[in-house]
Simulated assay, not measured.
Amino acid sequence: MTGLLLVTAVEPEAAAVRAGVDGRLTVAAVGVGPAAAAAGTARLLAVAEAGGRPYTGVVCLGIGGGFAGRVEVGGTAIATRSVAADLGAESPDGFLPIDDLGFGTAVVEADAGLVKTLRAALPGAAVGTVLTVSTVTGTAASTEALATRFPDAVAEGMEGYGVACAAAGLPFAEVRTVSNVIGPRDRAAWRIPAALAALTEVGETLGLA
């Protein structure tokens, strides 16, 4: 996967990926949330292109929450698409995605070639939609609503859709390692070290591919 830019939200995630990549690919933390991640990714892509060393694709990596029964804590999720799950409008009849409002789309498909390579390299990973949210899901009601709206969703994070928008025109993929089950907020149940260790394993895979 020579020439890929690997981006995370925060430095601990980037450090975990770097430990696996071992200098073979560029890894950078670009900020938390879709707006910061999009801006940070766009800047890195523009600087590389201006310097005559453009990247060939972008992979968003990080820890995130996983839907119960769809991916295990400590496991890995590969996105077939990244969806801005809370981009839209409320209505008396429920949430209206931006697609239904006619203002664009909240869905970015992952590059089929990258997904195929990632699936071959990470055969134990769950595969499906990864949701991008600006507010992390923390109640049973909101978890049920998302699981119903997105029956193929395996995980959620806060940056994928933003990175995908910044990478427009380049192959894009998103990989999440799972630190917690999506649902009522329970910090005691989070397994962040396990998710970061899994990120290092993903980095090793990307660095050798």
Score class of each variant (00 low, 15 high):
A120Q: 13
G88Q: 02
S91F: 09
S91M: 08
G94H: 08
D111A: 13
I98E: 01
L87C: 14
D111Q: 08
L114I: 02
L122V: 03
G94Y: 11
L118N: 05
T117V: 14
G94L: 14
L118R: 02
P123H: 10
L96C: 03
V115Y: 06
G102R: 03
S91H: 07
D93C: 13
L101V: 00
R119T: 08
G124F: 13
G124N: 05
A89P: 10
F103G: 00
G102N: 04
P97Q: 02
E109N: 13
G102M: 08
G88F: 04
V115N: 02
F95N: 06
P92A: 13
V115I: 03
D99W: 12
A110T: 12
L122N: 01
L122W: 02
R119I: 07
G104K: 00
L96V: 12
D100K: 08
V107F: 13
E90L: 14
E90K: 15
G88P: 07
A125E: 06
T105G: 11
A120I: 01
A120F: 05
P92N: 07
E109M: 12
E90Y: 15
R119W: 02
F103P: 00
D99P: 05
D100Y: 06
V108E: 15
D100S: 13
L114K: 01
D100Q: 12
A126G: 04
A106W: 02
G104C: 12
V107K: 13
L122G: 05
G124R: 06
V107L: 13
D100W: 07
P97H: 07
D111R: 02
L96I: 11
A120W: 01
T105V: 07
V115L: 01
V107H: 10
A126Y: 04
G113Q: 08
P97D: 04
L114Q: 01
P123D: 09
G124W: 09
G124K: 11
L122Y: 04
P92T: 11
G88K: 00
V108T: 14
G124I: 05
I98Y: 03
T117C: 11
A125V: 07
G104P: 06
R119P: 02
G104A: 12
F103M: 00
A126M: 03
